[in-house]
Design a protein around this nucleic acid. Structure first.
Lengths: 351, 351
DNA sequence: TTGCGTTGAACAAACGATTGTCCTATCTTA
DNA sequence: TAAGATAGGACAATCGTTTGTTCAACGCAA
């Protein structure tokens, strides 16, 4: 068992509170230099560290944050988590990671658990539109930030990108390349990113006077497999699209695989655009054209927003919106991939 | 502020301990049925949940585990984490995630912090050989499990695979394909996986009466970039290898990229074998031949070992060793990749 | 009516730390 | 020398639960 204040007090023949004050360098403490050094050496010898649980109870602060995401196995969320941890660990916080696998039920039970644990703040990246769990969260006295997806327009502290602009940008790129039949692998109608990116897609069509063909839009969900199936539906249809805008990179990767399996050349037979710019996007051959968003910054910005709320003690409704940016690669324009010698290498991947 | 026992006690006109006993369904409690239902409805109405921090202090158990890894952005560790969480969350545990970026200093400070927080157990997947932090850990009264890498032979609870056998298997495969000059991108001499896989490589050479050429072995570390640089060194040398065994898949991916940039065909000009079988390995074209280990099971087995120690209350020195398995793909044998229509699709990747 | 067994809860002591307040020597100053 | 100031810590309450022990009131039998 680790040493406690009481034990140290007994050994130093002083009151526990004195030890605590020395350990915490309490400026209000007046103490004889001799006593101080005696206590300090004792602290050092025993390698004393205050019990974080007791400390958390007394201070009403646990120095623990939590990140709730669908699945850390998805590179997008892994990078997001790193952003949060990098922003928080230097300030003495540890971070819990909760995977929901997209289940509202699991999300709910995780949040209840985190609340009971009195974590100091929650980063929620798995929320749905009009999410009841988010509503519940608003009434709890616990700082939180929604990331990437929001639940109700402009209600909650939020970090993300402008998905409408991004979706428009991606679609416009395809249209400007001459494509007239542009398909869309749509996200769910219950998720903000799905709705907005689809709206961006429609806006781009309208911008260029193209008619909406509902057969060109199909829901793919957010999984690679969903993307593959949806792409197969689109590409085997009578009047198939010559280009596809997928709601996320993972979905695009699914489409990418489906196209290859069907013997279609990318980008000659079908062009593909994704969203998020995960590392995998640049590793495919041809590279995946995609809408870049600063994933790591999503996380660190969320951490900042959380810490600000924790430190000031009141809820901040600020929204941080990053501008999405189109990255053109070989999946839409042949020969665009960086020349061999200069091909960027994803950095820092240990073991 | 969430409701406390004391407040509920005031409202129900009973003692806090009575509320606690009702909430916890204490069998030793004798109580009038009327009082019980009165309290139960109160609990339901207020949605009472005991303060986890106070509970942790009293029970000396926090129901928090921690996973310490180099970098969750690496698919290997992301999958490992999922294994741990899947094994632990159903039992009421939450899991902290700590990234060390391979820095012993960060690892040490994370462990000190986790110890102060009184987490119930630690999964450590970033340890070094003769790691001082692991030595420290042995003297603390906190359950821990080393995963994938060990620190000192057979000293600690451990989950991993037989890296010597795996390394031998990978190298033997190349030799049996007819390669006589087989290079090795070696891990660090300070990490067990690095040492053992290299030893496996040497053993396979010896098995087949091949001489060791020290120019064919070069340290790559565990990053993709390290793998690329190391592969370039090997492949530009006068008497270059016709095959390469890389210590991990990420390293192999680096080599894979380097070979492509140099205009070498895989596997005709250079064959490549990796280790771990991360999802990316099967997504490359050609697919990466690799040594499969059950990453997710590493995590869930580690969680089981931890929970067992926590529940029984004493340290278990058990070691769980999985058998590695060779997965042959196109990076060593042309045409081995699954036929188009049957190509497996990595499942479940949300957003 | 006295005594005893039950019932139904109340009491109180932890778990370790933090922090505002109080107390007792020792010193200073008039 | 008496009074006030100051230095150096001790005291004690508190954070919210859990749990072994105690206790009052009631019912029942002798």
């Amino acid at each position: 068992m680790p040493v406690t204040l009481k034990e140290l007090a007994a050994r130093a023949r002083v009151h526990p509170s004195t030890i605590s004050r020395v350990a915490n360098n309490d400026p209000s403490l007046r103490i004889a230099p001799a006593t101080r050094t005696r206590i300090e050496t004792l602290l050092r010898e025993t390698d004393y560290r205050p019990n974080g649980v007791a400390r958390g109870l007394k201070l009403r602060q646990t120095f623990v944050l939590a990140v709730v995401i669908p699945d850390v196995t998805n590179p997008f969320f892994a990078a997001l988590f790193r952003g949060v941890e990098d922003g928080a660990s230097s300030r003495g916080y540890n971070v819990l990671l909760c995977n929901t696998d997209g289940s509202p039920e699991r999300q709910r039970s995780h949040l209840l658990s985190l609340h009971a644990r009195r974590v100091d703040g929650i980063v929620l990246a798995s929320s749905y539109l009009k999410d009841p769990t988010v509503r519940w969260l608003r009434h709890q006295a616990i700082p939180y930030v929604l990331v990437n997806r929001f639940s109700d327009e402009a209600q909650d502290p939020f970090v993300g990108s402008d998905d409408l602009v991004g979706g428009r940008m991606a679609t416009q790129h395809l249209i400007q390349l001459g494509h007239r039949r542009v398909g869309h692998l749509a996200g769910k109608a219950t998720v903000s990113t799905g709705v907005l990116r689809r709206r961006g897609y429609l806006a781009a069509l309208a911008d260029h006077g193209l008619e909406v063909d509902s057969h060109l839009i199909t829901e793919s969900g957010y999984t690679e497999e969903g993307g593959a199936r949806a792409a197969e539906r689109l590409l085997t249809a009578p009047n198939r699209p010559t280009a596809i805008f997928a709601v996320t990179d993972m979905t695009a990767v699914g489409a990418w695989g489906a196209a290859r399996r069907m013997g279609l050349r990318i980008p000659e037979d079908v062009a593909i655009v994704g969203y998020n710019d995960i590392p995998l996007a640049s590793r495919l051959v041809p590279g995946l054209t995609t809408v870049h968003v600063p994933i790591h910054e999503f996380g660190s910005a969320a951490a900042r927003l959380l810490l600000e709320q924790i430190e000031t003690g009141d809820a901040i409704r600020r929204r941080v919106i990053f501008n999405p940016e189109l990255i053109v690669r070989g999946s839409t324009v042949a020969g665009t991939d960086a020349p061999a010698g200069l091909r960027p290498i994803a950095a820092l991947a240990t073991e």
